[in-house]
Structure formats: structure tokens, C-alpha cells
Design a protein around this nucleic acid. Structure first.
Length: 233
DNA sequence: GACCAGGCACATC
DNA sequence: GATGTGCATGGT
């Protein structure tokens, strides 16, 4: 595709907020629960994750200590509804092991670390990639990091602000170099993009009713380009 | 029954 | 470095 112009990030944000209202993320009772949810929701719908979280809660496993002591087998069976349960059970274990090894299982120790250092450490944990790390940083620890996900890319590229296969860091920098590093706003912004993605920007989009439809977006050209090839990006 | 969902690691070229 | 594949359930 041709040259991309800089997306009007403030305008987009206010449009979304005006249309959908505050999303009050992350849906969780504790910081630790946010971190668990961040791993469980990898490539998985939140409704399925909720079922897994409910099971963990029912078994009183939503604390670092309890999760550390439960067997891998039991853990996997409880998080079944979240999908990829064998993989995710290991990932949760890797994460709690890391949490105890680095911070003695104490949130207050983790949260006082500069987020740039913490981010690097999180990324070194097997099973934690950039989106999961940033979700933990922003939503569990309230660090000013912008979370990029597939919806973010899809929405920006549909509106021709982004190459569809731009990498994570490129997309993240668009936001973090052009907005105030504001935890509350980053929280809301990402949640709003997910809301837009779920509601209107799915594989069968109705972009003519998208609240961003007049922001650098040629709906007719979009349809001509994508109608026979699918809308997945 | 196909397709999708708030990714990531690993193999292979 | 780019590209492909396995992981798995539940909703539409």
C-alpha cells in the first residue's frame, strides 16, 4: 500500500468514547486476577476466559501461593473452557515461578520496579509475549504502556493508517510517541478499540456505521479491494 | 460445519 | 528474517 498518514489519535479516541462510553476495564477483582486473565485470554474470547476464572475462584486458586502449589494437571483441567488448556497451564506456572523467583510472590515488590525493566523481564518468561506483558503492565500494575492487539491493527489498517502486517512495536510507538503517557486514557483507549472491533469491525464489517468512517476512510474502495478476498485483516 | 476469538513458541526454510 | 503450524474450547 502507499504512504500512511498519521492517525488523529485524540480525535479517534474521543469519537470512540463518545460512541461507546467508558468500558471500565479490566474486568477482575484483584491485580493478580488481571495477570491470570491476561494469559488465559490469549487468542481466546473473554466469555470463555470468564468460565475458567470462575473455576479457579471456586477452587480458591486466584492467589500466587495457591497457583504455585496446585498441580499442573489439576490446573489444566480447571482452565479447560479457556482453550489451549495444556499450554496455558504451563504458561501460568511459568509466570508464578517467575513471580516468586523475582519478587518473592509479592505484588508490592513487582509494582515498584521501573516498568521498562519489568517489561523486559516479563518478555523473557516463556508464554508471555508483548501483548500479555503490556496487559499486565497497564491493567494490573497501572503502568503507562499502550496495549496493542489484533483489533488495534485491524482497525487502523482498515482505515489506511497502517500496513496490515506492521509489527507490534511499530504500532505501539504510534500511540506512545504521540499521546500523553496517561494510564487512565491508555486503559480506556485499548478497551474502546476492542469494543469497536467486536461490535463493528469484525470479519463481516459494516464500516458505513463505524464511528470513524469519515476519518481517512474510503468505504467504497475498501469493499472493492476486499469483497472477494475476505475481511480478516 | 465452518469460522472466529483481547497470542505465543517453535520448526523449518 | 520471514513464513507456517500447533495449541482447543465455546459461541455464531
Amino acid at each position: 500500500m502507499g504512504e500512511k498518514t498519521q492517525p488523529p489519535l485524540r480525535r479517534i479516541y474521543h469519537r470512540l468514547l463518545n460512541r461507546f462510553g467508558p468500558q471500565s476495564w479490566w474486568p477482575a477483582r484483584t491485580r493478580f486476577e488481571v495477570m491470570v486473565g491476561a494469559i488465559l485470554t490469549q487468542n481466546t474470547s473473554w466469555t470463555n476466559v470468564e468460565k475458567a476464572i470462575a473455576e479457579l475462584r471456586r477452587h480458591r486458586l486466584l492467589t500466587p501461593g495457591a497457583l504455585k502449589n496446585v498441580s499442573l494437571k489439576t490446573l489444566a483441567s480447571l482452565i479447560r473452557p479457556a482453550g489451549y488448556f495444556n499450554v496455558k497451564a504451563k504458561r501460568l506456572k511459568h509466570f508464578v515461578d517467575f513471580f516468586f523467583k523475582e519478587y518473592d510472590g509479592r505484588l508490592e515488590r513487582m509494582i515498584q520496579e521501573p516498568w521498562e525493566d519489568l517489561r523486559k523481564k516479563l518478555l523473557s518468561v516463556n508464554g508471555i509475549g508483548p501483548e500479555t506483558a503490556d496487559s499486565i503492565l497497564l491493567y494490573a500494575l497501572e503502568k503507562p504502556v499502550f496495549v496493542v492487539d489484533s483489533y488495534t491493527k485491524r482497525i487502523l489498517s482498515r482505515h489506511n493508517f497502517l500496513d496490515p502486517d506492521a509489527d507490534y512495536q511499530t504500532v505501539q510507538e504510534i500511540f506512545m510517541k504521540n499521546l500523553r503517557l496517561d494510564v487512565k486514557m491508555f486503559n480506556e483507549y485499548h478497551a474502546l478499540l476492542v469494543r469497536l472491533g467486536k461490535e463493528l469491525c469484525k470479519s463481516n464489517p459494516r464500516c458505513e456505521v463505524c464511528p470513524l468512517n469519515d476519518i481517512n476512510f474510503d468505504y467504497k474502495a475498501f469493499l472493492e479491494k476486499n469483497f472477494f478476498t475476505g475481511f480478516t485483516k
